[in-house]
Design a protein around this nucleic acid. Structure first.
Lengths: 201, 201
DNA sequence: TCGACGGGTTAGTCATCGTTAACACAGTGA
DNA sequence: TCACTGTGTTAACGATGACTAACCCGTCGA
């Protein structure tokens, strides 16, 4: 009755994945045992095999989940933007928000990608590539002086900047967010958007 | 006779550490076996115990080595600089060069720190903290509008930017270097140094 | 009332892997 | 010549840890 309130099955998986992400982030995929993950959600050990085919399957689902969310989210924010300049700003803001909200996912995704089996790793890499491509086109729409390779290098570097969040002893979320947005846009060589009249938000 | 040319013992350890770093970077500390490391240097398995007390000892020596090199190198570059502005530029340039030259070390140092035992981890963390402090003071000497916490967050973010190098499909080293230096300084809010007369180097 | 089923338990199996043991053997200084 | 040391080998040991087997039980639709 306690945990069976809303949508038992689906949310159970989510709950496990979330706990596993936290542990993977702290100790690394190979540094975490099945029993640890079980203990983190209040069941012990092999019970997890009722929900996942294997430990690797957890990692796979976790990583494809993140990459997928990033890709679709990134695309959505770019498409809904008025012009190229705000598209890039939206993208930066969105990724900053994601990184600040899900530090564990960011860490795992940077760190344990190569613990996946060949097939899954390819899937994730493909999604990542797509996400970077979103950045590259958004960036080149504003900075047409950049060739494709340079733009890609810039995108990787800025993603690195934003993704470094989990390692930094951060300020409170709000200041951190504005700081990172500013640094990212500066690094990308985007001229500061002039305040030009203070609108609502 | 073949490998015994110059300084057998010392260079043997270095050779092993270098091979191990490459493997750790690709597969993660726990994803690499003793036998793998041995094979990478042409001996097989337990021979390594003639040179290191344990697998963990390898990682420990590797990580303290890097951190130590970064700290002393960073300090040196700052001290030898003419003024505060060039000190920061030197620091950026030095770290960029280090990251481009030793991608494997950077990766391992970001990824497998928590595989160390408590004591070693503390040692490494202390060195890292010192290095970041070098950045913080160098940065605040130029940007006196930043309080200490913000400066530290900036430093972490820029180190993240530069350290993302190993993951990016880079251009050739030279262009990558200038690109990263420019991005880092922009992110730190340092006004572009005017060319003001082309001196020798 | 009752079978099916989702989800949990504990005890065991099996592979992997770090580490040690026991042995080999080339060079080198007495 | 001989012992010693530095470096390597292969064979075992022991712990760890992913996964499976066998069993249990509350709930829910017929």
């Amino acid at each position: 009755m306690s945990t069976t309130a809303t949508g038992s099955t689906a949310s159970r998986r989510e709950q496990i994945l979330s706990a596993a992400a936290e542990l993977f982030a702290r100790y690394g995929f190979h540094g975490v045992g099945i029993d640890d993950i079980g203990a983190a959600v209040g069941v012990s050990g092999p019970a997890l095999y009722r929900h996942f085919r294997s430990k690797d399957a957890m990692l796979a689902e976790m990583l494809t989940g993140i990459s997928d969310k990033l890709l679709s989210g990134g695309r959505g924010h770019v498409e809904n933007a008025a012009d190229a300049a705000t598209a890039l700003e939206e993208l930066v803001g969105w990724h900053v928000e994601f990184a600040l909200t899900n530090p564990a996912l960011i860490t795992v995704h940077l760190r344990d990608l190569d613990s996946l089996c060949e097939a899954d790793r390819r899937r994730v890499r493909e999604l990542q590539r797509g996400y970077v491509e979103v950045w590259v086109t958004a960036l080149r729409a504003v900075r047409d002086d950049l060739d494709e390779h340079t733009a890609r290098a810039c995108a990787h570097a800025v993603l690195g900047l934003i993704n470094s969040t989990p390692h930094s002893a951060h300020l409170d979320a709000a200041t951190m967010s504005t700081l990172l947005r500013r640094m990212a846009l500066d690094a990308l060589g985007i001229p500061r958007t002039p305040p030009e009249g203070l609108h609502g938000r």
